[in-house]
C-alpha cells in the first residue's frame, strides 16, 4: 500500500529491536567472560520486552488506565501484563546465573569459559581427582 521507505520507517522499532537482540546474542556467543555473557543475556531479554511493548502501542493512544472520557483510545494492556511477568522472571534467572558463576569461580578460580573448559579437560585426562571441590561443581 505504501512505498518501501515508508514501510521501513513504520516498522523501524522492530528493525532496531532485532539489531539489539542480535547484539545481545553476539555477546552471549562470542565473549568468554561469564559475567559479560549474563549481561548479554539481559540485553537480549530487554530487547524482546521492547518488541512486545511496541506491538501493544496504539497510535494516538494513552496508558491503559481508565478515565471518564468515553472516547479515549488506550494502548493494548495485554503485552504489558506479559512483560511485567517476564521482567520478574528475568531477574530470577539472572540471580541463578550469578550464583552459578560464583560457584564456578570458587571451583576453578576463573570466570573465562575457555579457561574453565581447558581446566575441565585437563582434570578429566588423568583419572586422579584433585580435591573434592572440582568434583562437586561438575
Amino acid at each position: 500500500m505504501i512505498g518501501p521507505v515508508a514501510q521501513i520507517l513504520e516498522s523501524w522499532n522492530y528493525l532496531v529491536v532485532i539489531a539489539l537482540m542480535m547484539g545481545g546474542l553476539f555477546i552471549v556467543i562470542s565473549q568468554n567472560n561469564l559475567v559479560k555473557k549474563l549481561v548479554g543475556l539481559a540485553i537480549f531479554q530487554t530487547s524482546v520486552f521492547i518488541f512486545y511493548i511496541s506491538v501493544g502501542k496504539m497510535a494516538g493512544g494513552t496508558a491503559p488506565i481508565l478515565t471518564d472520557g468515553p472516547e479515549t483510545l488506550y494502548s493494548n494492556p495485554l503485552p504489558h501484563v506479559l512483560i511485567l511477568t517476564a521482567i520478574v522472571v528475568g531477574v530470577a534467572t539472572t540471580a541463578l546465573g550469578l550464583a552459578l558463576v560464583l560457584r564456578i569461580h570458587a571451583a576453578f578460580g576463573s570466570i573465562e569459559d575457555d579457561e574453565v573448559l581447558a581446566m575441565k579437560a585437563e582434570a578429566a585426562e588423568p583419572r586422579a581427582r584433585r580435591g573434592g571441590d572440582m568434583g562437586d561443581a561438575v
Binding site: 530487554t46 520486552f49 521492547i50 511493548i53 511496541s54 501493544g56 502501542k57 496504539m58 493512544g61 494513552t62 496508558a63 491503559p64 488506565i65 488506550y74 494502548s75 503485552p79 504489558h80 512483560i83 511485567l84 521482567i87 520478574v88
Partner: peptide, 13 residues
C-alpha cells in the same frame, strides 16, 4: 516504555 504507554512496565523495569 513510558513513551510507548506502558507505564506499569516502565516502573517495574
Amino acid at each position: 516504555f513510558v513513551n510507548l504507554d506502558a507505564v506499569d512496565v516502565a516502573f517495574t523495569e
